[in-house]
Design a protein around this nucleic acid. Structure first.
Lengths: 233, 233
DNA sequence: CAGTGGTCTAGACCACAAG
DNA sequence: TTGTGGTCTAGACCACTGG
């Protein structure tokens, strides 16, 4: 009735998915073990394992040693999306990309920046603000602090031409980071650069990254009103 | 110098990651092939494959047949986060969860809903609005349309007690969907339920799901001002 | 303690794309 | 054409955990 003749782990994944979506296997059910499924599909256990592991990574199955593989009662689905490299995001929409450096200075870290980056006191950072435009219209306003010790050469980088975003991607790896998304009102200081009215709702992305425990950069990106992040499940 | 004595694919992953973060292998570089790495690490090629595949899934390597494995010039990192089941999201913050059904009616789909769900004309849907509260304070306002044909039994579901969110999770699987995030101004119709002023910036999540090509539900969730989504990289 | 998933191996063949 | 990653296999041992 079901098992495909030619198996690959993706076929098995698809078939298991079908059984989940058609409720052949219902939430709370224990599904057959890998060995039995391997027999049914006529393949090696490792192949079944690959398929089930992929589904478990998507939150569609719960797997535990000894306990077996179970259909979760309330599947916790995960959404994932690419963190946009702004130039590509903008060009991907068919718009001409332009980037304008607004400010570049070396300054002691304000306390909230120091906290976000878990910096010691009184570190001097590179502070850069800029706008990314699509077809001449402001797309994102960016306020960034960079730790020169973790990004050697950044003080001499040609940030008039290359956005800090891209310069860092090419010159400074990072091993960990965190992102938050918020809706925030456009601030007075940002309004002009964004060609938006202060107080308008804007999508805001804040990121801080570290490389091997050393803080690299923290950035606040304010997207022009109307921006949408879209992804599939 | 580097290769751990005892290898597992995670050790190899970690070691490769270290070489990327310390720029032993730089952006644009071609790294050694699986066979050679297997020799270096003293393990089977499949083990190296597992490690490199994991890194490639995170966007930290580019792999192509025949061409080999390359360190991307501009790594496209992906962020992923769990789509919150609201009750758990709220309880996870240590708040008491409460849910209030505001409206429940059967109505023809408005055109924008029909479009989002790719419905034929004149379908009658179940329309539900509700609020989820944490310690009594509005947390999310939810405006949802459900296709009864894809969610049998939903018309009789006790939505006064169980949120449509949870009822659907337990009773109706979905195979695909899309999500968008936006910042939007709180609408007048939502303001009272959210205890927020109209026009305030709010984080908005819109989701539509299908099960095997049949539209299941579309929902707009407006989070109370100040809400933040946070995840790690 | 026993049964499940987690991992590893050695070998094989295949699919793809660069030269 | 040829070398690379992608996948599969059959078998093995291990780690965790439920009963």
């Amino acid at each position: 009735m079901s098992a495909p003749d030619r198996s690959s782990w993706e076929d098995i994944r698809a078939e298991v998915l079908r059984r989940l979506n058609t409720r052949v296997w219902k939430p709370g059910d224990l599904i057959p073990g890998e060995t039995e499924l391997a027999r049914e599909f006529g393949c090696a256990r490792a192949t079944v394992n690959r398929a089930l592991r992929a589904l478990a990574e998507d939150g569609l199955l719960d797997r535990k040693r000894r306990a077996g593989t179970r259909v979760p009662l309330r599947p916790v689905r995960r959404a994932s999306f690419a963190i946009p490299v702004l130039r590509e995001e903008i060009e991907g929409r068919g718009l001409a990309y332009r980037y304008v450096l607004l400010k570049r200075e070396t300054a002691p870290a304000p306390s909230e920046i120091g906290t976000a980056m878990r910096l010691g006191s009184a570190a001097r950072l590179l502070h850069v603000t800029s706008v990314h435009l699509g077809d001449g219209a402001p797309f994102v306003f960016e306020d960034r602090w960079i730790n020169p010790e973790a990004a050697p050469g950044v003080t001499e980088a040609p940030l008039e031409r290359v956005s800090a975003n891209e310069w860092l991607l090419m010159h400074t790896p990072y091993s960990q980071g965190d992102i938050t998304f918020t809706a925030d009102a456009v601030r007075t200081a940002e309004a002009a650069a964004l060609a938006a009215a202060p107080g308008q709702p804007a999508f805001v992305m804040e990121r801080t990254t570290w490389n091997l425990e050393r803080p690299v950069t923290t950035v606040r990106q304010v997207f022009a009103p109307g921006y949408r992040v879209r992804t599939e499940l």
